[in-house]
Amino acid sequence: MSISNLTQSQLMRLSQGQLNLLERCPRQFQHTYLEQLRPPTKPENEEKQLQGSRFHLLMQQREMGLKIGKFLQADANDKDNQNILQLQNWMRAFAIAAPEILTQETANSETFRESEHYRTLQVQDYLLTAIYDLLIADKQQAQIFDWKTYPKPQNKRHLEYNWQTRLYLYVLAETSNYPPENISMTYWFVQSESKPHSIEFTYSSSQHQQIKKKLNQHLDRLTQWLEAYQQGEQFPQLSVGNKTCNHCQYASRCQRLFVGSEKKSSQDLPGVDATLVNLANIQEVPMS
């Protein structure tokens, strides 16, 4: 929803992706979420996203007790047989690597399990949203699981400070009776080189307070920027020369194609689609 359509009685929804973008570049947040100037997804990236969505859907169906084997066989005659085989390999490898996650102990009625578990938390005038790929909880602990279909990141610390990790742990602690020390989050990377690989993050009360402080700082700034935006002011930009701009689809719009006195062409900017170089000259058409 465009900020211009928000009333005082409505809450602006924020996901982990929006928080990551807001922290990385406020102006990019403005272009993407307030003005909805999302560029077309490249075909190769679109295919990867589609394959990831298929895997998540299969995991959800499996958790619901549906027969996913028939689904895979039914699609095996389609043109994207390679994608179906890849899904089969991912599912098979994950079942071998983490059978304890996939085993549903129906006899233990005190264990809660839910795929695509949805939670919200109001902080200030914002509604924070979190969708857990799988949540398993009992009387002692709560475990968050997230499936990733891209290779395992080399930097675990970067993943630790990603807002998906911070927000998901924070929201669960705030909306349940579990102390932070009894909550964990595990990422499973099904496309690792040899076999599926996991990265687990535990939680603590001190981390919870640090995230609370950082979150409120971001929301305070966002409120100020939104109020200024209503008066015609732009969100803050990154400083000139910041390397992040070299890979941003809004570089031209933000006048970040200049380095010193020399203008850089689209060919000089890796990751920037040449069709977006003149994006600033294209009439803005809000996307529904």
Rank of each mutant, 00 (worst) to 15 (best):
Q210N: 13
F94N: 03
L128H: 00
L172Y: 04
N182L: 04
P99C: 09
K212G: 15
N162I: 09
S204Y: 00
A93N: 13
H117G: 02
A95E: 15
Y132T: 03
T149S: 13
Q140E: 13
I131D: 02
H117N: 10
S194I: 14
S192C: 08
Q207A: 12
Q140S: 14
S115V: 14
K213Q: 15
Y161F: 15
Q217G: 10
K156G: 07
A97N: 08
Q143V: 12
L167N: 06
D133F: 07
Y168T: 02
A130M: 10
H197E: 13
K139W: 04
T129M: 04
W90I: 06
L215K: 01
Y118Q: 01
L128K: 03
Y132R: 00
N177L: 08
D133G: 03
L102G: 03
I144W: 01
Q164N: 06
I136M: 08
N162S: 15
V171E: 00
V123L: 08
P196L: 14
K212I: 00
T106A: 10
E116W: 09
L127R: 06
T165D: 10
Q124T: 11
N108G: 08
L172G: 06
Y118G: 00
S184H: 01
S204W: 01
E100S: 12
N182M: 08
D146C: 05
K213V: 11
E160C: 04
T129F: 04
H208P: 05
L135R: 02
F189I: 09
I144S: 00
D125V: 07
A98D: 10
Q141S: 12
Q124H: 10
S204H: 06
S205K: 09
